[in-house]
Amino acid sequence: MPAISMKVNGKAVSGNVENRTLLVDFIRTNLGLTGTHVGCDTSQCGACVVHIDGKAVKSCTTLAVACEGASVTTIEGIAKNGTLHPMQQAFHENHGLQCGFCTPGMIMASIDIVKRNGKKVSEEVIRRELSQNICRCTGYHNIVAAVQSAAEKM
């Protein structure tokens, strides 16, 4: 099995994987970071979103071997010294989750949205750019409110 090494949440990690191992499986099984979820089999739900080299991508549709040398950030890597990331805090305060299954992907996608669109990102842009993060519980309203509130603080 090929050996791979990359940076995950700022730490150097390595492991042996099959070529077919998806990044999400490497993260969950090899590294034990189970915050990143798998919600579908069709690359459509967004529960698995992580950042690779600063960009939001679906870790269920990325080969682990292709991430050799990359820098990956998961939901476990965004709080600093025990303080929630402003986006996590805003989801908490705005009741942007119910069961929480979609939340890690929502938060990683939302941080990416604010990074690219800035503090003044509009509701329309947030709704459009979250369209491939599916939530079965909330009705999205409070998620959008959370992203807008976090944007100002990021």
Binding site: S43, G46, V49, K55, A56, V57, K58, T61, T62, A109, D112, I113, E129, S131, Q132, N133
Partner: peptide, 9 residues
């Protein structure tokens, strides 16, 4: 095309 995550790849 698709969503943001698809467009990144």
């Amino acid at each position: 095309i698709g969503g943001v995550h698809v467009r990144h790849k």
